[in-house]
Nucleic acid binder design. Structure first.
Lengths: 92, 92
DNA sequence: TTGACATGCAAGTCGTCACTTGCCTATCAT
DNA sequence: ATGATAGGCAAGTGACGACTTGCATGTCAA
């Protein structure tokens, strides 16, 4: 649950989430080109692939494989209970 | 604004915010002892001091100096617009 | 089946950051 | 003034992580 903070610490991973928010269900190559274009990110395909692995490991991304394509979908569920940890603290 | 994610990536800094949520306005030494006790964190005074500097730099902590004491207060304002970046995306 | 396309695996490099160590400054009590 | 307490500055170490390079696997079209 606290791995989500580590996942969100990398600027490249936040850019990936931005991209998937703008257009969900992209493949790896789509993300590579669009991140280079719109976000001024000059990253290798493998770099982005590793970032996607991290995001998927913490549940921020779901994937579906179809043939040789692998689509990536953002999942914002883990984001909801994150900040509420310090904001609405209903403690004693 | 995106430095907040880097600030929140360190577990020690999240523990500090937890401690200040539990009891606001602590001094450096108070935080040291209580972090060691309740959070099983064995950190040096300087380590915690550096974490406090980071948290203050991104606006998650405000401080007030009185004599030789420096009190630390949590400020949750920067936390509000963080997650909304991907959750309620009112895009095109 | 051959080649192009989309992705995966593994090892290596490099920089950053968390943490420590050592010393210094400032405030208060006696 | 002196000692004790609360905090600050600066340099050094070590490890983790972001990123790259190189090669391998699997899918599709011709």
């Amino acid at each position: 649950m606290s791995d989500i903070f580590e996942a969100l610490s990398a600027p490249a991973r936040r850019a990936i989430l931005d991209e998937l928010t703008d257009r969900d269900g992209q493949t790896l190559f789509e993300l590579c080109t669009r991140l280079t274009m719109k976000h001024n990110l000059a990253l290798t395909r493998q770099a982005i692939s590793q970032h996607l692995d991290v995001l998927e490991a913490v549940g921020l991304i779901r994937t579906s494989r179809e043939g040789r394509y692998k689509y990536h979908f953002i999942d914002t569920k883990p984001l909801h209970q994150i900040v509420s940890r310090w904001i609405d603290s209903p403690k004693k």
